[in-house]
Design a protein around this nucleic acid. Structure first.
Lengths: 236, 236
DNA sequence: CCTACCGATCGGTAGG
DNA sequence: CCTACCGATCGGTAGG
């Protein structure tokens, strides 16, 4: 019959194992996707047998849900700290992008695809709400500031609303960094760490200021407006 | 022993069936991903048994490769027609975005993920090259025009090079349209067709001009430059 | 283009 | 936390 100390030791061991499973599952799910990662892969990577996972999580889906829950909650904390800073919109967006890029938050599109296609409707709704509350809302609040300050175009004057801006930022994030490369040897992750901050900065630059040179900007807007019939009042 | 007419009829039937399989597989692969679509699903949707597929394609991977080959080649034709038009950079990019949005080219990220993670190295290289040649290159040539004309910022002066710009355009494309919605009834695909062109236009607007209001743009660039130490010479 | 069937692997359970 | 095992499904083959 196990008593006090043994019980405590077992409990500590269990929580540590649970945490190991969560971290391992996060890495695998985020890289390969829900369906492509088997419960046996996760267990092997943790040094466990596959049935052992079911002591800690009800099933594969709930393990995935817990992974996303932990991830988004942790990210929310970091984002809200950045958002509350006493700095400009551009500076805070830069910090947001750098933070998101530094985490294993790699392919947001893969995560959203899994949520929409591989989970039960109840879990879909739960994780969608979590995604919107923990990730989109904090980022959108920065864009909201920008719109309120008159820095960003107002949605009713040809601008993009804060929530769509936040989505756009997240989708722009990892993609043109992780894009396929014509293989030139075995150095797959070669220039990934040097240019990282520069590329993160570029995302914010493009999102805020676009690709157009400053001098030609006004004339371009007029040109496109003739085709589009929007943004007519620049001094309204 | 079957003779002339019968043989011809069988051949026509075969090509039609092959085409049906390709179209069906494309829809399923592009929506759910390579791994999530079984060969039996594809066969069922075509009104065939699963082993019948293997008369037309060597295996599942080759079917996927043929789907991508057909898709990218068709898209290349359309893109190159747009690119050759006698119109401005912004107008041609608008046409590109509208075309890509109109096709089932939905989740480019899913496609790239499947190519990188689910196929053999040989097929990876083949499809990566195809992707770059058929999709990225034509779009990049428009950005190249913009840079050459002095319309877009030069890569060495804080701008983004043409190829990265093309990637960025493709990643911005479908995402903030297909984003998860808080379910409000069963009308899932509700406002998708009315606002389509407007949203496509918005992608080009943001990509070229960013989110910042015109009046405040110059001062913002100066603000960020102080933090970043780039784009110092606006009249260079 | 079908029926019948294969080995491998999947998520999950029984029982200790 | 393990061994042993389950039914279901996967991609693919044999043979006609």
């Amino acid at each position: 019959m196990p008593r006090g100390p043994k019980k405590i030791a077992a409990r500590e061991d269990s929580e540590e194992t649970r945490h190991t499973i969560l971290r391992t599952a996060e890495q695998l799910f985020m890289e390969y996707g829900y369906r492509a990662v088997s419960t046996r892969q996760i267990a092997d990577a943790c040094g466990l047998t596959q049935p052992a996972l079911y002591h800690y999580f009800a099933d594969k889906q709930m393990l995935y849900v817990e992974v996303i829950k932990e991830n988004t909650t942790k990210t929310q904390t970091a984002l809200e700290r950045i958002v509350r800073r006493n700095e400009g919109v551009a500076e805070r967006l830069s910090l947001v992008v750098r933070y998101l890029h530094s985490t294993t938050q790699h392919d947001i599109g893969l995560m959203l695809h899994d949520i929409q296609h591989e989970l039960s409707p109840q879990m879909q709704e739960l994780l969608n709400d979590l995604f919107n509350t923990c990730l989109i809302a904090p980022i959108a609040s920065v864009f909201e500031d920008g719109i309120r300050q008159g820095l960003l175009r107002h949605p009713q004057q040809g601008g993009l609303d804060a929530i769509n801006s936040a989505y756009l930022l997240m989708t722009m994030l990892p993609k043109f960094i992780d894009r396929p490369q014509s293989q030139e040897g075995s150095a797959l992750h070669s220039n990934r760490y040097g240019a990282t901050i520069e590329q993160a900065e570029m995302v914010v630059q493009v999102l805020l200021y676009g690709l157009v040179r400053e001098q030609t900007r006004e004339q371009q807007i007029i040109t496109l407006s003739a085709d589009k019939k929007t943004i007519p009042d620049r001094n309204g």
